[in-house]
Structures are given as structure tokens and as C-alpha cells.
Design a protein around this nucleic acid. Structure first.
Lengths: 222, 222
DNA sequence: CTATATAGCTGACCGACGGTCATTTCAATC
DNA sequence: GATTGAAATGACCGTCGGTCAGCTATATAG
């Protein structure tokens, strides 16, 4: 138990500080999964963990930097799950299905991805932002490599696919982020609208169109 | 000048109230274009117009309802501009280009569209939300009609195109919403990343892929 | 023309937020 | 056991969206 930092102890060595930072992140993610982005309060998180609010700000400069770090973690985690789920010679539909289901299964990843550019990246210091972009680049490369094999595409095509899937994922899951209207009485036209924006088929259909489009461009260029 | 409501006068008739509401919206949009979503403060807007903060809340229940109304207006405005810009027998690329440039030209539309589901629609009363969705449906229909002619597609295909263009637009313009890094020194890999997510080519390339995909699905089903 | 009633308008006030920093307290070192 | 430096603290700050009892401009009645 020597390396564990009890809640009332101080983290003095670099190791102990890393542990504490990790503990804060873990608690933050649990809390985030409970209440979501908008209701996430630093003061309440502090009370939950039993640390003073000021202590957080020793480990993260801003609330958004905390979110950026959670995003980074969830990106890395999801990438691994997705890559592990790929196999050789998949159809583009099966590929898109895997991508969507693995991303949806992670309760942190999508809500943070969707808010990344217009909320989180503001109020984060530039060097931290740069390092985050570099993590992103690394993950795109790793996913593209696996994609190249799974979909029998060139490396360049695979990178194009991966980037575009990200764009599409953000757009297609937008509807899932609205307020829950499950228990509301809605007119039929609105119900139909919502149904027609169901994120999973929306994503998969268009992912297939895009992947096939990219495939055909290569053939046309021979 | 009888119907104009001076700033110190009271809006008593329905006409005058509508005028005042309109004046508030106009001032709000001007202010929004100045400072953007995050820095938009009801108190500051009040001072700008010379009305008390409480007065806003007679015309809009919440800050988000004000944004929802601005969004609605900008959607209607953009739809008209876009439809007017379409002509018969366009290539899918020309179509996508028109869509992107008209949407980008409206400083209000995209920033609000991107925040619609996960920020604005929360904190708006359900009936207001429903009426907003119905405005959306109406606009989609109008755009689809014009699209059907321009791209020589069936009505059903055109609706599919329009809905999907919306999804793609949100995803592709995400990068434009990040903090400005123009005057920052960035490592080359990050610069390349940002360049490769340039929203205009990103949108147009994939719009073409999707439109052509939709076209081909119809041929395949004959 | 004045008195009354109605309702548009006001802004001090509320609780909660993210963030700060002078002070306290713990633990490693001498 | 004394010293010291840094980790931890939480009262405090300015600002936010939102409220509502009181104020007053205006339409109407007499």
C-alpha cells in the first residue's frame, strides 16, 4: 500500500501525484457518466471525492482541460476496442456497424467528441491543445492501419475513410444528444422526423456510401 | 411612426409586442455575431439595448429559447438563399458547393445548428420545441423540392439527400468552431492535420460521394 | 380632465457557477 | 525535535441565468 495516496495524505513524489491525478480522472469520469456534461460541476465533484475544489486546480488548469483529458482517454480506449473488433476482409457495412456500436458503447467518448471543438478546446492552454491533437493523429494512424487491412484499401484511402468516419459520426449522433422526448406526446410528423434521424442507420448507410465512393475514386483513377 | 415602440414606451397591443420581440431578436443577433455563443450574456445584451434583463424574460422563457428562435430565423433565411441559388440540372458538386457557401455566409446559422441538439434544445419548453421541429420539417420539404429538380432525383431521394447534407454539414464544419490557432506556432504535423480537416473540401467531397451513392442505389433497385 | 385599473417594465436579489490565493498543515530533511 | 517547502484548503470573488414584488405608463371610465 506504500504507493497509494490516501485521501487525506499529500502527494509529494511524482509517482504519488500521477496516482492522485489518475484518481481524480477516474472519479470525474464516473461523475460525468452520472450527470452528463452540462450538469457537471467542479464544486460537486470536489464534494464527491472529498477533496477541496482548489486541489483540482493543482492538477488541471481549467474544467475544460479536465474534459479534454477525459476525451483523450476515451479516444484511446475506444480506438483499441474498435481495432480489436476488426477482422480481415470486412464489408463496409460490417465495418461501419462495428465502428458505430463500439463508439456508442463508450458513454464518455461521443458526448465529449461532439463538444470538443466548440466548447472544450476553448479554455485550454495552447500547448495542451497541441499535445491533444498529436494524440489524435496517432490514433487516426493506428485506426487507419487496421482499416487498410479490413477494407482492403490503400493507406491513403484508409486515412481518408477514418477521418471521414469521424466527421460522419459527429453529425449522425447529433440527434441522440437532444433532450429525451420518450415520455412526451408528440405529433405524428415530429415523431416521424425523429425516427428518420435515428443515428445508427443514419451513420451506417452514409458510411457505406462514403467508403464505396472512396473505393470507386481509386478505380476511376487507374 | 405610430406603430414603432420607442425604447421607453410600453408595448401594449399585440402588434407592438411583436415589434418589440422582433427588435429584441435583431439586437440579440447583432450581439451574437459580435461575441459568439459562449460569451453571449443576457445581462450584457440588456445593457446594449437599454432594456431591463427582466423584460427579455417576458418575451422568451429562457436564454436557450432566444437562441432557438434565432436558429429558426436563420434556418428560414438560409433555406431561401440556398433554394434561390439552385438551378436546373446541377452537378452534385455544384450543388454541394452552393449549399456550403450559402450556409457559411450566414454567421448565425452554423454556430447555432451545431449547438442545437446538445445545448439549445435543453432548457426549452416542449411545445416550443415541437413547433421548432415543425418549422424544420417544412424547410426540409421546401429544400427537397428544389433539390429534386436540381439534381434530377425522385422526391424520396431528394429528402434523403437534404437530411444527409445536414448531418454532413454539422460534422464537416466542426473544425471551424475550434479556437483560432492562426497566430500560434504549431508543429508541422498539427498544421497538416488542421489543413486536412478544412471544412469546405471535406464537405464537398463527401457530399458528392453521398449524392452519387444515393443515385446509384436507385439504379441498382430497378 | 381626473381617477382608477391594468399590465408592461424594472432592477435588486437569489443560488450556483468556475476559478483564485492567503493561509494552514503535513511530511521529508537536517 | 526543529525547520522548511510544497500540497491542500475553503472562504472569497465576479459573473452568470433567472425571479418577482413593486413601480409606473397607458387605456379606460366617470
Amino acid at each position: 500500500m506504500s504507493s497509494v495516496v490516501a485521501i487525506n495524505q499529500r502527494a509529494r513524489s511524482a509517482d504519488q501525484k500521477a496516482l492522485r491525478r489518475h484518481a481524480v480522472l477516474e472519479a470525474a469520469e464516473t461523475y460525468f457518466l452520472e450527470v452528463g456534461y452540462e450538469a457537471f460541476s467542479m464544486s460537486k465533484l470536489a464534494k464527491k471525492i472529498g477533496l477541496a475544489k482548489g486541489t483540482f486546480y493543482l492538477y488541471f488548469q481549467t474544467r475544460e482541460e479536465l474534459f479534454l483529458t477525459l476525451y483523450e482517454q476515451s479516444l484511446i480506449r475506444w480506438s483499441q476496442v474498435f481495432i480489436d473488433g476488426l477482422s480481415d476482409s470486412m464489408t463496409s457495412e460490417a465495418y461501419a456497424q462495428k465502428l458505430f456500436s463500439s463508439a456508442s458503447a463508450d458513454g464518455t467518448f461521443l458526448p465529449l467528441l461532439i463538444r470538443l471543438e466548440h466548447m472544450i478546446e476553448h479554455n485550454v492552454a495552447i500547448p495542451r491543445l497541441i499535445s491533444s491533437k498529436q494524440v489524435f493523429i496517432k490514433q487516426v494512424k493506428a485506426i487507419a492501419e487496421a482499416t487498410s487491412i479490413s477494407l482492403s484499401l490503400s493507406e491513403a484511402q484508409a486515412i481518408e475513410v477514418v477521418k471521414t468516419m469521424g466527421v460522419l459520426l459527429i453529425g449522425a449522433t447529433q440527434g441522440d444528444q437532444g433532450p429525451s422526448l420518450d415520455h412526451e406526446e408528440l405529433p405524428e410528423d415530429v415523431q416521424n422526423l425523429i425516427a428518420s434521424f435515428s443515428s445508427e442507420p443514419l451513420f451506417i448507410k452514409n458510411a457505406v456510401r462514403i467508403i464505396e465512393g472512396i473505393r470507386m475514386e481509386a478505380v476511376a483513377n487507374i
